[in-house]
């Protein structure tokens, strides 16, 4: 739905549930988005000009659906996290390891969004983790409706943590509430220290910022102090954890954060 990034509205998105080791893959029928209301022929004409103060939030529909998601997650005791970053910051890798370690102790499910392919869902598929892939076609972000449909397709029995891996994009997902309890923004050491200054809205909306790929920071000459200072200036509200999904650095702290936010069973 963006001007700059070339996606169009309305968006016909696809949905696919991936089961690890499943012989055949189930493909759900593409879900049609609501058509815009038809233009009714002008009714009784009135000569008096009218001023109507509507005060309507422009994201009203998404916000309503997001609140519905939030209510659903809460009623099921699900901790929902919205993972956002630029493409290649390490969302899938971090999530994979999280499912292998934390996911053995606490049942997790995943909804993952990309423009095309179910590669990420295949990467994340584990026998103990239900995964749904949403393909957005041209849309550069997940919205609350897509997430609701994705979650609907999953078997949530016993699931306590829902990871929503958003489309890799640091701009548009900032405006789209999915009903998550925590928005987790990833910044990788390969991206440079000033990303928070360049893309402030997404960092401002984060409850958690994960500084990823710390294992390669030294090779890259990454200025850790500057990056942390930039995050602190733009997003003082966010909890910051430095992690490496490869070396395992910081993961204990990440899992502790998840554990601390679990709903009481």
């Amino acid at each position: 739905m963006c001007v700059e990034c070339g996606c169009n509205a309305p968006v016909p998105f696809g949905l696919k549930v991936i089961r690890a080791f499943a012989p055949g893959l189930l493909r759900a029928a593409p879900v049609a988005t609501d058509a815009p209301p038809a233009l009714a022929p002008a009714a009784a004409t009135s000569a008096t000009p009218r001023v109507v103060d509507v005060r309507l939030p422009l994201l009203a529909k998404n916000d309503r659906l997001a609140e519905r998601n939030r209510g659903f997650f809460r009623s099921r005791g699900l901790l929902a996290l919205n993972l956002v970053s630029s493409p290649g910051a390490g969302k899938t890798t971090l999530l994979g390891r999280t499912l292998d370690e934390f996911g053995r102790e606490v049942r997790c499910a995943v909804v993952v969004g990309d423009l095309e392919t179910d590669n990420d869902a295949r990467r994340l598929a584990r026998p103990h983790v239900p995964v749904a892939q949403i393909t957005t076609g041209t849309a550069c972000h997940l919205d609350a409706e897509m997430v609701a449909k994705g979650v609907d397709a999953l078997d949530l029995a016993g699931v306590r943590v829902l990871f929503i891996e958003n489309v890799g994009n640091l701009v548009c997902p900032a405006e789209f509430d999915l009903g998550e309890a925590l928005r987790v923004v990833l910044l990788s050491t390969t991206e440079g220290e000033d990303k928070p200054l360049k893309y402030p809205p997404i960092f401002k909306s984060a409850q958690v910022v994960l500084l990823t790929k710390t294992d390669v920071a030294e090779v890259l000459g990454f200025n850790r102090a500057a990056a942390i200072e930039n995050i602190r200036r733009v997003a003082p509200q966010a909890q910051l954890i430095e992690v490496s999904a490869r070396s395992g650095e910081g993961l204990a702290e990440w899992y502790a954060l998840l554990r601390g936010r679990l709903a009481k069973p």
Binding site: C2, A9, P37, H141, C172
Partner: peptide
């Protein structure tokens, strides 16, 4: 950013 989408929902409401 997503100005076309925003404007579409605004005009729908209008």
């Amino acid at each position: 950013m997503h100005e076309v989408g925003l404007m579409t929902s605004a005009i729908d409401a209008v």
